[in-house]
Write a protein that binds this DNA or RNA. Structure first.
Lengths: 343, 343
DNA sequence: TTGTATGCGTTATCAG
DNA sequence: CTGATAACGCATACAA
């Protein structure tokens, strides 16, 4: 087992000092060409690489980004993560992931752990429990300690920091308007019971679209499903008892379940009812019919978040006390597929 | 902005030496109860936490695990990652993820980066390109440098290390046998063109089941689809021209596409044809009919991989030169749903 | 009971 | 041109 070689060992082997080796490898012009050549050759031969830990300690920056997300087995978060990882990697950063599992406690614990020197800054989407408890002291804490923070998707108004969000209201408006344009008159909304901004915003966009197009809003046409453990019977009852010719679902699972139910009852999609979902995942692409859905461009969100964080990190050196936080909006787009009547 | 406090600062404030502080916080009995009290109180007040980087440098261990996977926007890898992260977190390790994106070059690059001190050991599944090139020198390299390595799923026989795999052959056998037990006589296989062990092993299990149950193997009943960019027409042609009453698909996407195609042609699932897929993801759960599928228990695989790696890491201290590598097999299970006729 | 010195691997400053 | 020294934050063997 050949352990990694260090400056010290090279110095010893070559009979020079550590600093000579260090400078040579940095191609400093304090050192004679001759010595540099020799050192470089030796270093190359033994495949010398500076030790990241030592560099981190010295430079007080790890070149690591901490990502804290509620869930990783979830298409949206996964795509965002992909974007973060991609951008970070291209810019010489590594990514440390912690999954809060929607738990406040784990979120706090993980962030404290990471804040003890493992990372230079955070990108995160807060857990459901955290939103519910409405306690964000851990976020404030890390910011006070000087860690740049970028929030995405599940964002906290109360916290002043960089943010990346989606135009949920707007795209829900567009989706609803599209169905109205198809001639739909009774448009339902299938949403989730929760304290999430996003669901609320989508509902707002839905209502605004109805209103602005002179379609009556009927609250009975809104089906609220639990956050976890959706029983198909809820949906069956809804399909059974309500009369609608269009549905906006806040995720693709609800949309696919709903399509299955309507079709089982002989109601055709999209002839009899249009369906639009959120999240452009596998379900949307491979359902029958394929699902018209809102693509959230998670990867782009991730890249943007990473870009914002890294910019802060790189600029921290030198400048410092100007608090200019941005909120970037990644525009979602409607992908028209088989569950709506497209022009 | 209050930066994190260090031992040195505490020492200065309290007018004692750094080592006194260090020992006090470790509750060493070299130190008087009185001093310990004082130091602890102060440390608590200022929320002292040892700096991970400094600890890493000193202890020569980072308590970080490097995970290198081909893709993260992929249900199986995501679940495995979840398992790794979970176990690692419970045992005080953080996880650094690098996505190779199925590229040999990125894989090598990332591993070299991580090997420069960022992590203590690797858990990985090799990229497609790496398998294709058949070049594993980067794996040997890190092992020679003393990094424990655990491979999962896409495993390399040539590399001696801990491994976690699935009983692909066996479960494919079982799945095929199940369809035979249903009375199916002409069972097709939809697989992927590739150098992946897993596809091959699944094909082997399929063939063995046919053979052992006296069903003729007809190579025309095997449809080989490209790794990426599957055209639905391939499947349509296959359904059109071949005659089968059961299908084993090596992933859930193929299975769902196939079900959609057959159903469009008026062939009923499961009445006319049984379908079984691999990967128990969203598609399997929400397709119509729901898909009988092989659950790979990725999370379990991840936990096992992390367990094996961490065990190696913790035991490295002291013992050393006993090379006892294990290969753990995580048993997949068949989840019976609506696409087969279940007893 | 407390403190000093050393080392982990690197870089930067300053002397030689 | 080269090298010794300090510093990053911590732990520990060894003095006092």
């Amino acid at each position: 087992m050949k352990r990694k070689i260090t400056l010290k060992q090279i110095a010893r082997e070559l009979g020079v000092s550590i600093s000579t080796v260090s400078k040579s490898l940095k191609d400093s012009d304090e050192i004679s060409t001759d010595t540099k050549q020799k050192v470089k050759a030796f270093a190359k031969l033994y495949n010398y690489r500076p030790n990241n830990i030592a560099l981190s300690l010295k430079n007080r920056r790890t070149k690591n980004i901490g990502v804290v997300i509620p869930d990783i087995v979830h298409h949206f978060f996964t795509t965002v993560f992909r974007g973060i990882e991609k951008y970070a990697n291209q810019h010489g950063y590594n990514v440390v992931v912690c999954v809060s599992d929607e738990s406040y406690e784990k979120e706090v614990f993980n962030m404290e752990l990471l804040a003890n020197g493992s990372i230079d800054g955070f990108i995160m989407s807060v857990s459901a429990e955290t939103q519910q408890k409405n306690d964000f002291s851990h976020l404030k804490e890390v910011m006070e300690q000087g860690f740049p923070l970028v929030l995405f998707d599940r964002v906290i108004d109360e916290i002043e920091c960089d943010k990346v969000i989606m135009n949920d209201e707007e795209i829900a408006y567009q989706a609803t308007a599209k169905m109205i344009a198809e001639g739909r008159k009774k448009i339902a909304l299938v949403t989730t019971e929760s304290y999430f901004n996003v669901s609320e915003k989508r509902a707002e966009g839905y209502k605004r679209a109805l209103k602005e197009h002179g379609v009556d809003y009927d609250e009975k046409l809104t089906l609220v499903l639990p956050f976890k453990g959706v029983e198909e019977s809820y949906i069956e009852d809804f399909v059974e008892n309500k009369n609608f010719d269009g549905v906006l679902c806040v995720n693709e699972i609800f949309a696919v379940l709903l399509m299955a139910t309507t079709q089982k009852k002989g109601i055709r999609v999209p002839e009899d009812v249009s369906v639009i979902g959120f999240t452009d995942g596998l379900l949307s692409r491979y359902s029958s019919p394929t699902l018209t859905t809102v693509a959230q461009h998670g990867e782009k969100m991730g890249e943007m978040a990473a870009e914002m964080l890294i910019e802060k990190l790189e600029n921290e050196i030198g400048f410092h006390e100007e608090e200019d936080y941005r909120t970037e909006i990644i525009k979602a787009t409607l992908i028209e597929r088989g569950s709506t009547i497209n022009t």
